[in-house]
Design a protein around this nucleic acid. Sequence first.
DNA 1: TTTGATGTGTAACTTATGTTACACTTAAAT
DNA 2: ATTTAAGTGTAACATAAGTTACACATCAAA
Lengths: 221, 221
Amino acid sequence: MKNIDTEWSDFTRFEDNENNNFPADLKYSYKTYLKNEIIFRQGNLCDALYILVSGSVKTEMITETGNLMGIEIIKAPRPLAPAFLFSDNNRFPVEVTTLEVSEILQIPKEEVIRLMGVQPNFMRQFLVHNANRTQFLTNRLQMLSIKTIKGKIAHFLLEQYNEYGKTFQINRNQTELAEFFGVARPSLARSLSEMVQDEIIFINKKEYTILNKDYLKSLLV
Amino acid sequence: MKNIDTEWSDFTRFEDNENNNFPADLKYSYKTYLKNEIIFRQGNLCDALYILVSGSVKTEMITETGNLMGIEIIKAPRPLAPAFLFSDNNRFPVEVTTLEVSEILQIPKEEVIRLMGVQPNFMRQFLVHNANRTQFLTNRLQMLSIKTIKGKIAHFLLEQYNEYGKTFQINRNQTELAEFFGVARPSLARSLSEMVQDEIIFINKKEYTILNKDYLKSLLV
DNA sequence: TTTGATGTGTAACTTATGTTACACTTAAAT
DNA sequence: ATTTAAGTGTAACATAAGTTACACATCAAA
């Protein structure tokens, strides 16, 4: 699974260039929050682009690393829920709370739009980020809509196969994998060992080898 | 469940104004496809914005899962997978096939970017659409990551509650609801009747009434 | 009003997965 | 080298959901 955190930092890169390319009259503001302060409540209107420039916050939602609903910790620099800025129902779906003293840069929606007109790179980053996010969600949705554990495993392994070939490393332990799939750890272990037993896959520590690709494909239905 | 088709037509509105506001030198092309022609194969590069301007197409998740993400029929006017145009891995995730003679307008990626600079409304529509799409996916993902049937029902009913109050109509029959939740029909019926038994909800034909909202909320965990 | 199609309720049974618990292994820390 | 923590395998059992099957209800068409 790809870590999509990298694009987030790309996305906020524009801040570094502020002195150079940005409209001098751009409206924005910084706000500092204390530890354990609630920044957004669920249902709050999201009428600006909020970028966490320092500190860290926690929120509950689907995590960027792909784990199912739980508490996600967001470290600066990263925008907060930029996907909701332009949606028709632009309200925060979750509560956001600081974990330490944190600073948030806020750019009003209309200014964001203006900025995009002036700064094609900023626009591009925004578009790319949201596109990646959509793709990520689509992929997760596919994975979750497979109902059997072996099916989920197959989906995941075939993805790796497409990227790396029939042998690859998985840098997650069973517990993390189980969380990723949204299943119980012993259940995952059972399915995995059955698949090894049946010679569908071979596992040595964190190295996985696909022995029967066609069978894996048949599990996706 | 909200119908998100409406935004799609908004999004393509720019076509109507072509003569007025669009750069005269905008590069674009039209292509006509016969019935049952494959327009895109899974994995095809998506390097342009494709808008279905007449006709209709169907898409299938080739790899996965029956009911849940099954076959979608798309009628003109609507763009095809615009979310993928800007993603890092910009390949079509699905196969797209015409259902009748159909016409597709194609605007190269770079031209789309230029267009956005010139036409703030176009950009806005694009942003709004993708934001709504993300929200839709997020919501769907939330629903799917609830593991019990009663939990899924609760999630769905509470959504209706927030929009319409404690009594509302559901214009789907049990079979459709079961497909929507990705569960078996008799299992859904069993859960529903238990919830009625326990006086959590009341059902009369397609009219649902929420009797114990707090209990429904407790099912979401 | 009869017929057929579509939808609903529900029972008996099967199956996959979750739960809990514990022994064993490996890696890390002292 | 010894101790500790983290990770893995797996067994026994509980439970939710799937499967199949069928009776009954509703509604529209003939």
